[in-house]
Write a protein that binds this DNA or RNA. Structure first.
Lengths: 402, 402
DNA sequence: ATGTATTATTCGACCCTCAAACAAAATAAC
DNA sequence: GTTATTTTGTTTGAGGGTCGAATAATACAT
């Protein structure tokens, strides 16, 4: 049951009930399609008459369509309702340090078209290029009416201005995607941190986390980001900068981090950390195994570990240990139902999972170990799918009530 | 704006709008009383006609009363509305390791009567005694109709069963207060962790945190507890065990903690930690200053520090440093608007505040230091007032919508 | 006395859900 | 083959809500 928020309330009008129930019905159709009106009534608890009225309205607005008739042992055949995936398209944008992906998706978050291009170093130039490519993508599908553009970015986003505050791996500061893109396309634009987007994607599109209300998405790449959903809502903090658990110090006197603090979690458990660990181990020994490679990529280390390279395996195991340490912090403090790990390292799940499990068992009281730690099912797409969810949730999840 | 929760939705009926608006109006009256109907209409955005209907209903149910007439330069005089503090009493119970306080409060959370007694070591015996004393308290005020009983306990509470899972400082496990008390008094009983109760108290009764939606209450006593409110709601986690940031390790290889983990925050920053630090410092030196005192209390150390005792001051400063370390974690991860510190140590605020501030400045990027850290205004009462809020929020804050 | 400003109430229009009755459609029973 | 049964979906009136305009009630200024 949801609690009213009396600090930023909005009053209920005569249309509020319809608004609430409409969204409930639409989301039920989204998640259970195909489904009959009678089943919707049973599932929602609304009267069949009310469901009919709402369904009529949704059909008229083309959110749903009527499909085939169902079959039952007795009685009138039910008419199935479907989400009208043709009704609207959503543009998703995933900005990453090296490459940016843009995609056009339907209401089921299935991608109709996508393309990837190199992320320009200069933010102004990047926005210009992004804007052009998005326009081309929209125009190349004139049959689809676009609802909006969702952008996931590798950094925190100011809650009010929607500006990207700081993206350490891009070196960008105070970049405004929203205003120029809205101006050039005329579509509503939502910008969100990548980890937050991943958390949304998990809640919105993954079966396994269907009924979950408390979830953390941990993105592991150059750094570590955390997207936190509590009571079904993103934790954004005062100005949108919550969720920086990657920069919580797990060792007061540890090595300096880029953020200014010392011994941050991501200094020990990010891809960078594993690379540094590997480089240190291999160069300290007498024989350097790969003199030609100055600094390997994380992919290299994963590959070497798969091939049985001891130092690479140790680097991965070292990383897994510290992933466990940080996850213990998250579980102790937030105790979500699920933590989803997103990053290349999940390719070595068989290797890292036992280590993470052991650390959690050592460090958590038995009654506090009720959190599932899972790898993301798809390594590449959660960011992009999260950017779709940014727009989707406007229509499905967030009524303007109370 | 509040978001609907589609994972545990509840549909809107024809009465939903009234239910929402009624609570908004009632809470406006609670926080702004005395207030006229016209002002309520302006503040809420509802029509004056609607406000009148709602006010009539609230008057009939005796939630509010009409008071004096106001005075304006022109026009008809407004009739002030007040919360009817006589309507209902709420029993608050604050269970602490040594002493338990029970109190009868009115709707303004002003205490009408209270008493304190020694907490029995045996939970069954304690519940028996508590039950008796509560009955006596209720019966001694026959003119007041009691709405319910709120209990704050020093440990985490299972979200479903409402049992106290574990209270380390009491040695109690799986204690059920709710069922026996409800049976013996016939009143609804709510049980909540002390830190959560403090967070609620702050949101509900403190002017300074009126419009705040993200707040953390940190209770510092034998251990450290954190009560977290995000988006206006308590963070409870899967089974109610969220908020144990006191048991997050800030030093992987630090001393063993009672919880099984190593180097927990509370091992460094609790009252116990300061006592240990002081004992270690004084016994390691050649001359023991207080050979008679085997182990001082935290109050002793505070007193000694006030008197200028160098070792005591150092112990407090040591504690303050580590408080800062842990607060940096909370700010980095959750970024609340306000963190409230509750505990005896706030009596030495002038001493600890500069240290905490310095640690935060060292450890947080400048753009992440937007959190206010404040001492609780009242050291003794927040737990008790929080237990009142537990019952109050049922009537004022939580409509059964969406 | 009249005009103006402000509060509070009344009343009809409109929106919404509910519950019961009804229409539609398919199978089971005879 | 006709009738009973069962299930889906629609229609309709009652009841509860908010809105907005009109109206009544006050109090002060001119």
């Amino acid at each position: 049951m949801r609690k009213i928020d009396l600090t930023s309330f909005s009053i209920a009008t005569s249309e509020t009930a319809r608004n609430i129930n409409r969204r409930i019905v639409l989301d039920l159709i989204r998640t259970r399609q195909p489904i009959s009106r009678a089943d919707l009534a049973r599932l929602s608890g609304l009267q069949r008459s009310t469901i009919s009225l709402i369904a009529d309205q949704l059909i008229e607005e083309q959110w749903i369509t009527q499909g085939a008739f169902g079959h039952l042992p007795r009685g009138r055949k039910p008419r199935f309702l479907h989400l009208n995936v043709e009704r609207a398209g959503i543009i998703g944008v995933n900005v990453r340090p090296t490459k940016t992906t843009i995609a056009l998706a339907n209401l089921n978050a299935r991608f109709i078209a996508h393309e990837t291009f190199t992320t320009a170093a200069d933010p102004d130039q990047f926005i210009q290029e992004l804007s052009n490519r998005v326009s081309v993508l929209i125009n190349s599908h004139p049959e689809i009416f676009c609802e909006g553009i969702g952008i996931s970015v590798p950094g925190r986003v100011n809650l009010m201005s929607k500006e990207l505050i700081f993206a350490p791996n891009l070196g960008w500061q105070n970049v405004n995607f929203k205003t120029p893109l809205e101006r050039s396309t005329g579509l509503p634009v939502e910008v969100e941190n990548a980890a937050n987007a991943c958390a949304l994607a998990e809640i919105w599109f993954e079966r396994r986390t269907g009924g979950v209300r408390d979830l953390i998405a941990v993105t592991i790449s150059e750094g570590i980001g955390t997207g936190i959903i509590v009571n079904g809502q993103l934790v954004r903090g005062t100005t949108g900068i919550a969720g920086e658990f990657g920069h919580v110090s797990i060792n007061e006197n540890g090595p300096q981090c880029k953020c200014g603090n010392r011994g941050c979690w991501e200094v020990y458990a990010s891809n960078e950390a594993a690379i540094d660990e590997y480089v240190r181990a291999t160069s300290s020994g007498r024989t350097r195994k790969h003199p030609s490679i100055d600094k390997p990529t994380f992919e290299d280390i994963l590959y070497l570990a798969e091939q049985g390279d001891v130092k690479a395996i140790e680097a991965i195991e070292h990383m897994a240990h510290y992933l466990g340490i940080g996850l213990a912090m998250l579980i102790t403090g937030i105790a979500p139902s699920v933590i989803v790990l997103i990053g290349e390292v999940t390719r070595a799940w068989e290797r890292i999972n036992p280590i993470i499990k052991r650390v959690l068992e050592e460090r958590l009281p038995s009654n506090q170990n009720g959190t599932q730690v899972l790898p993301a099912e798809d390594i590449l797409q959660p960011r992009l799918r999260g950017s779709i969810a940014l727009i989707l949730q406007k229509h499905f999840g967030a009524p303007a009530t109370a």
